[in-house]
Simulated scan of single mutants.
Amino acid sequence: MKKIGIIGAMQIEIDLVLEKMVVFEESRIAGFPFYTGLLNEKEIVLTLCGVGKVNSAACTQILIDKFNINYIINTGIAGSLNEEVGISDIVISTDVTHHDVRKAQMKNLFPFQETFIASEELRNLAIKVCEFKNLKYHTGRIVSGECFVEDNMIKGNLVKDYSPACVEMEGSSVGHVSFINDIPFLILRCISDNADENASEAYTDFEEFAGNQSASVVFEMIKII
């Protein structure tokens, strides 16, 4: 049976999945909690990585090394970087990259990738779920960095440089670590804000809804994976 790793950065991003899991074992490694059990009769390891790329990279590597994961899904919330991507919409990753690392460095230094390509199999499953649930969704690039974007100038530069659908703080490192370990991955986000001067207020209003919306897609994906 395939074993699926599910990663969220914040408690609100994993609560729905955790509530629906049958947990057999809870362990803690390097401060990260790992919940092993069943979800929709599939073997699952659910973990909470904390905010930021360093945390998510470390947690992803532990998930791979200690739990023999076959797939990784990173669920959570993000800020929109595209006028067509609205609050509460779902973004399904085609690829991910670090927006705070120079493109030349990404290309010329290990692992020699400007972006990390998400699993087509997992992406198609997410699309199928969104269409079944009649959710508005988008496929596209997700960019990550070690900051919460709430500035129109920064937002404009990200749009110009990367043409992304959304921005957040963990997905690219999950994709990076998955890539170097040859593990299929998907980054799934629900939009909580527009990554502008009103981002903090919108985030506060929509974070719980967005976290649950993204997790609900993951829950349905597990049924058919």
Rank of each mutant, 00 (worst) to 15 (best):
L125T: 04
E25L: 11
G5V: 07
I187L: 07
A215Y: 02
L38Y: 15
N124M: 10
S80G: 13
L122V: 06
G76Q: 10
I72F: 04
S216G: 04
L39H: 01
V159M: 15
C59I: 11
I224C: 09
F34R: 08
V22Q: 08
I142Q: 12
S119Y: 03
F185W: 09
S172L: 02
E168R: 11
S200N: 03
E207T: 14
I64M: 08
K160Q: 00
A165Q: 11
A57W: 13
T115F: 09
T94D: 11
H98Y: 15
E197T: 00
H176I: 09
F148T: 14
N70A: 13
K128Q: 12
I29T: 10
L186D: 03
L109C: 05
I6Q: 04
F132Q: 07
Q61I: 04
Q113Y: 08
N68T: 10
Q11M: 09
V22P: 02
I7C: 04
D65A: 08
I14R: 05
I117D: 00
G76A: 10
V217G: 01
L109G: 00
E220P: 02
N68G: 15
F185G: 08
R102N: 08
K3D: 01
I44W: 08
C166F: 09
P184L: 00
I180G: 04
I90P: 00
V51K: 05
E114N: 14
D161Q: 11
I69T: 15
N70G: 15
S172Y: 02
Q105V: 14
F34A: 06
N55P: 07
D193T: 11
E19C: 00
V149H: 14
F209R: 09
N70Y: 07
I154V: 15
E150I: 00
I154F: 11
E150S: 14
I44N: 03
I6D: 03
C59H: 10
N181P: 06
K66I: 03
T36M: 13
G50V: 06
V54R: 13
V129W: 01
C59R: 13
N134I: 05
F219Q: 01
T204V: 12
A195N: 11
G175D: 14
T204R: 11
K160L: 09
I12C: 11
M169G: 05
Q61K: 14
K223Y: 13
V174K: 06
F179R: 05
F132R: 06
V91E: 01
E201Q: 09
G8Y: 09
L158W: 13
T115H: 14
M21I: 02
S216Y: 02
L122R: 02
I12T: 10
F24T: 01
P164D: 07
C59M: 05
V17F: 02
F116D: 05
L109S: 04
G50E: 04
A104S: 15
